[in-house]
Computed example of a mutant assay.
Amino acid sequence: MSLTEASKIKAIIVPGNGCDDVRDSVFYDWLAQRIRPLFPGGVILRDFPDPYVARESIWIPFILNELGCDENTVLIGHSSGASAIMRLLEYHKVLGAVLISAALTDQGIENERASGYYSRPWQWSAMTKNAKFIIQISSEDDHLVPIDEQRTVAKGLGGDVEYVEFKDMGHFLMSEVPQIAQVIERKMKTLE
């Protein structure tokens, strides 16, 4: 990677639904501050439109057009944010993606169904072709996204995903998650 290309690398943090103030939601602001030195192009953490349903038809254009997602972007998504990233990756190239608590189905929840992410089959091979790397972070005791779903996402992505599974991190609803930062830091150092 050339010095010019490296200077453009940025990260976009895509929150889970229900976050109408992302700077005051779980680990997002803490993570943005922690990983900022790794991204010369900046770390983007902004409130998303439609925060409670997180509709694909609203979030994907927002990520692309408003936040400027491109081939120099690392997308970091949590929960519904991970689902948004997976759908975005089916048609758009990025540098990389970090999927935290990635769901496979709407789990019978009407609000999740209304988002639109789970209405059709996932295009796993397109996702892996459109990102230079994908990291998936899961926890065995996640009470919102069953671990079997998260493992199925990893199988769908195949050998092209780096899968990290914790035993006791739940749905990653803490204000600080050093383990996530460490995984991102390690990966970004391999790109230098």
Results as ranks from 00 to 15, higher is better:
I85K: 00
E112R: 14
L89K: 04
T73I: 09
R36Q: 12
I35F: 07
A97I: 07
H78S: 08
P146N: 11
Y117E: 04
M174A: 15
I12M: 12
G170S: 13
V183T: 13
Q182N: 02
V43D: 05
F39H: 09
L67S: 08
T152G: 05
L88P: 00
A54W: 00
D24G: 03
L89T: 06
A84N: 05
S79D: 11
E176G: 11
Q33C: 15
K8H: 01
Q33I: 10
L45W: 00
Y91R: 01
N111C: 13
S115D: 00
E5H: 09
G156F: 06
K132P: 02
H92K: 13
E71P: 08
H171M: 12
S79T: 07
V161W: 10
G108H: 10
G42K: 02
D141Y: 11
Q136W: 06
D20C: 01
K129V: 02
P61D: 02
H143C: 12
G68R: 12
Y117D: 05
Q136Y: 00
L67I: 03
L38A: 06
I135W: 04
V153H: 10
I135V: 15
A126K: 07
Q136H: 14
E165V: 12
S138T: 14
R23L: 05
Q150M: 15
K129M: 12
E176A: 13
K8D: 00
I180S: 05
M188Q: 02
K132H: 11
W30G: 15
E162S: 13
V43H: 11
A154F: 10
N130Q: 09
L157T: 06
F39W: 01
A126I: 11
G108M: 14
A154G: 15
I76Q: 03
A181K: 03
L64H: 02
Q179I: 07
E165C: 13
M1C: 05
R186T: 06
D29P: 03
R113V: 02
E90M: 06
G16I: 04
N130V: 03
I109Q: 10
K129C: 03
E112P: 01
E149L: 04
L104H: 10
K132M: 00
V183H: 09
L88M: 03
E90F: 08
I109W: 09
V22E: 01
F172G: 11
P15T: 07
N65H: 08
I180F: 12
V161P: 14
N17W: 10
H78A: 09
S101C: 15
Y163N: 14
E176H: 12
F172C: 15
S79E: 10
